[in-house]
Design a binder for these strands. Structure first.
Lengths: 206, 206
DNA sequence: TGAACAATTGAACCAAAGTTCAATCCGTGA
DNA sequence: TCACGGATTGAACTTTGGTTCAATTGTTCA
């Protein structure tokens, strides 16, 4: 990462936005502030955030509703709640929905920074995972429908002969399809094929 | 399951123990009550619980500390917090540590039963998973050290020839070891071998 | 319509894996 | 000490998998 992480802040309290923005920028972080959930969503597609710090109780859409919206768009983007009007049920819901933490105002700076660091670490890991997955998806996306079908039989552990019988084609055809699969995906061993297919959610045909 | 689920309740309030026990028993659930975390831990080995409902603030060991103790002994046993003196940080900590829910007194009966049902469902699933894992562990535990070593090379996707070279033995030896592995574990295909080894945390040797 | 691609098959061949029978060597426990 | 199980190897064999060359059919896209 050549650029510092970019933190989004959503809170209806201008004083907090200002103070928190100043604090984070002093830690060499980039920040973008939003006064409401709606303002944030309107800008969502235009910015590339690494973490979002959001209030729960705001006029208009609540922080918890915003969490749902964000989760639907970018499931692995780490969220940090920071609120003054929070309740236990709210915090439980937020954490169960995947929030990294749920802090209460006034917040201890060290506590906030610790949570933020954790969020950024998790987000970075999630990004690496997602990138690997995208690469895999690209390579397996090149497979034809038939090749994918053969693959799904292969990762069920069937021998070529059985696959050929089930598909009503010759064993040679299966071999060619398998060859194409390894060519297109770059995955040569059955072992790696199983792991890759499992990660991509490709289901075996038993 | 012929027997109804068995719920443990840990709370320092005798009135709550009594009321909650009555409620759960009316729902065809078995219950066992404990007045303190210490009392619960002393009895832990003797009972077979499916879920535990526990208070946070109790004289002596707190509910959160008890959660740690329970988690160390039975990581997948579902926990449900039910407390009157809870705080947001407590609830966040509990949920992050894996608690199914964190409810506040006075609790809505329907809410409690919903959470409890979810806890029991999760616990039952965890039990099924654990049982499958135990069976697998048994079968793979029969492997000799050498056979396990060969297996770890196999699930790295290496051909027998390469494994033989790395271990400084002949290819025939590897074949025999592999045959023993499939005999002892009952797993015939490489595909199934990879999945089983991965679930057991058996690491490949690359 | 012609080019390009997917799917299919056959033949022949080589490499890898699995099986069976037989044998040797080494440590551990009875 | 002797028997037993684990590790090792060899030989011979079968099955399965992977590769190459060549060819046919159907569909789709320009």
């Amino acid at each position: 990462m050549t650029e510092p992480p970019h933190i989004g802040i959503v809170d209806d309290d201008p004083a907090l936005l200002k103070a928190l923005g100043r604090l984070l920028r002093s830690q060499k972080l980039r920040t973008t502030s939003y006064a409401s959930a709606e303002a944030f969503l309107a800008d969502f597609e235009n910015v590339d955030l690494d973490c979002i710090i959001l209030d729960v109780s705001m006029p208009g859409m609540s922080g918890l509703a915003l969490q749902e919206q964000i989760h639907a768009r970018r499931p692995r983007l780490p969220l940090l709640f920071l609120t003054g009007q929070g309740t236990i049920p709210m915090s439980v819901q937020a954490v169960k929905a995947g929030a990294v933490d749920f802090l209460t105002k006034p917040v201890d700076q060290a506590e906030l920074m610790t949570a933020l660091e954790r969020a950024l670490t998790e987000g970075a890991q999630a990004n690496r995972d997602a990138q690997e997955l995208t690469e895999l998806r690209d390579r397996f996306g090149r497979l034809s429908a038939r090749e994918l079908e053969v693959l799904r039989h292969v990762i069920a552990g069937k021998p070529n002969k059985a696959i050929a019988a089930e598909l009503g084609v010759s064993e040679q055809t299966i071999k060619v399809h398998r060859m194409r699969v390894t060519q297109k995906t770059g995955v040569n061993s059955v072992v790696a094929l199983v792991r890759a297919a499992d990660r991509l959610g490709i289901k075996a045909i038993d």
